[in-house]
Amino acid sequence: MDHFQPAPEASANPAVSVGASLRQAREAAGLSLGDVADRLKLSLRQLEAIECDDFEALPGAAFVRGFVRNYARFLELDDAPLMAMLDTRFPSSLSSEPDLGTATDAATDTAPVVPARRGFALAGLAGGLILLLGVGWWWSQRPVEPESEAPQGLQPMLTEQAASPIVAESAASVSGPAVGTDAASVASVPKTAPVLSAPVPASAPAAASTNAGEALELNLKASAWVSVTDADGKKLVFATLPAGTQRSLAGKPPFKVVIGNAPNVELRYKGQPVDLAARTRGTTAKLELN
């Protein structure tokens, strides 16, 4: 439609602008602008603006549509075609409201927006779930490792103790390399094997002399968190011990030991030093002693 069509010489065809058709109808009814202004309570300036299609002079879309509708009704014109002509420039408040956000009842407007947001949300949620599952898996895996390590780590001690007379004998009688291969074959953990195998001959009598109950000895070079639980679930220690603490613990094996700040703690079990470094993650050592 052409809003600035100059003269209304054309007859009342649909191409005629809103203002021109209103003017035609008014003139056909023999009414002056003053009559209309009197009836609609609009100012002459506003009526002239309507008839000249100068809608910018009117307060806003809702008012343009309201005034034009009232005018048409007064002239007993059908307002539907006029409203349709205004739709492009002054959209109805029923369809959309550009200055008040996107979520209007024009479903076509919002259709592309909503799925996009949904998509983001779903992707985010899926990512979150995967992350959660990953963390959960990691946590579930974490405690398993010391357990799987424990048999490996503790097996040598057991076998060592069981095998210690043999080892001692073999060390005494058989040549040196035999001990190395024997220890390596029995204990698949090379780190602990030398530590354990070396003092065995010396500490074997000491282990025999120590009280079976007084099995654990702690020596702290710096303050550390220590938790020792015996087979009955009794907590022998469950505290942060200050630096320089020396403590002997008696209880029923096996012991579950957790030591924070492990590099600064010496642990002896049945008189034998336990290599904490092999079972330390970060600074925390977790182990089970039989």
Binding site: K41, G66, F67, R69, N70, S93
Partner: peptide
């Protein structure tokens, strides 16, 4: 309302 107040009055759409 227009006659009583002398102001333009119109009914909103819908």
């Amino acid at each position: 309302l227009a006659e009583e107040t002398g102001l333009p009055v119109f009914v909103a759409e819908g």
